[in-house]
Design a protein around this nucleic acid. Structure first.
Length: 243
DNA sequence: TATAATGTTTGAAC
DNA sequence: AGTTCAAACATTAT
């Protein structure tokens, strides 16, 4: 469930709880859940892969990692990490990381880094890339400090779209390619959002988990790449290695 | 059934 | 002391 666009979908689905009071709270999270009881949710936000439940003076941050999930007006058999009940429904979170942050969202998050946010700033991403010229692009795209919300699927699809080999070095990319990478990190994320909403995300994958390149009919290489050691799927023929 | 996978934090080891 | 790395966590489809 993890990448940024999926969290945007959650935010939209949970929007009906904004302005509502938490009438009951439970779960096996180690944070002080009792603090939420009777408090009003001011708004629901997202930043990258973080889902933010904002209260007056503090925020509950939910991160789904690899296996986390949620249900709205529904439950899974297992015990929820956190369950929030409102007068108009409930939301349950499973096997996720939950933290309490003091203060406002702006004290903790820079929304201009979130590829899904209206405040996203292309120039800022370009500037941050220039600070890590030695990094491989497959790692750079996964940097949440640069591309908050981008995950491994988006990484692979972006690199395929712009025809850049995942083991290319950031500093070796021509500026026009770097710009394309930044642009597509956002563009593909929005495509991901639309496809995911229609339950047809996988149908549109061109590189991720594929074995044949649709462009040249050659093989798609699958390889663990970068210091992050994540799976990369790429076409050696169509994706150029810059180094 | 065993494996691998849309991810991050932590703490040991250097 | 700062950096690096692997382990830990946890679920489900294949």
């Amino acid at each position: 469930m993890p990448e940024g666009p999926s969290i945007v979908i959650l935010k939209e689905e949970a929007a009906k709880f904004a302005g509502r009071k938490v009438t009951a709270v439970s779960g096996n999270s180690k944070i002080d859940l009792a603090r939420l009881k009777g408090k009003k949710v001011l708004r629901l936000q997202s930043w990258g892969k973080h889902f933010l439940i904002c209260f007056n003076g503090f925020i509950v941050r939910v991160h789904f990692l690899l296996f986390g999930s949620y249900r709205i007006n529904d439950r899974k058999p297992q015990a929820p990490r956190m369950s929030l009940t409102f007068t108009n429904g409930e939301i349950n979170f499973y096997s996720c990381s939950i933290k309490m942050l003091e203060g406002d969202v702006s004290d903790h998050y820079d929304m201009s880094i979130d590829v899904m946010n209206d405040a996203w700033d292309k120039k800022k991403a370009m500037e941050k890339l220039q600070l890590v010229p030695a990094e491989l692009v497959c790692d750079a795209l996964l940097e949440q400090d640069i591309f908050a919300g981008v995950g491994n699927i988006i990484k692979n699809e972006v690199l395929y779209r712009i025809q850049v080999h995942p083991e290319s070095t950031v500093g070796a990319l021509p500026v026009a390619k770097a710009r394309k990478m930044v642009d597509e990190a956002r563009n593909y994320s929005f495509d991901f959002l639309e496809w995911k909403k229609k339950y047809e995300l996988k149908k549109h994958w061109l590189a991720h988990t594929k074995t044949i390149c649709g462009k040249c009919n050659g093989p798609i290489t699958r390889k663990i790449t970068g210091t992050k050691k994540r799976r990369s799927f790429f076409c050696n023929e169509c994706q150029r290695l810059y180094q």
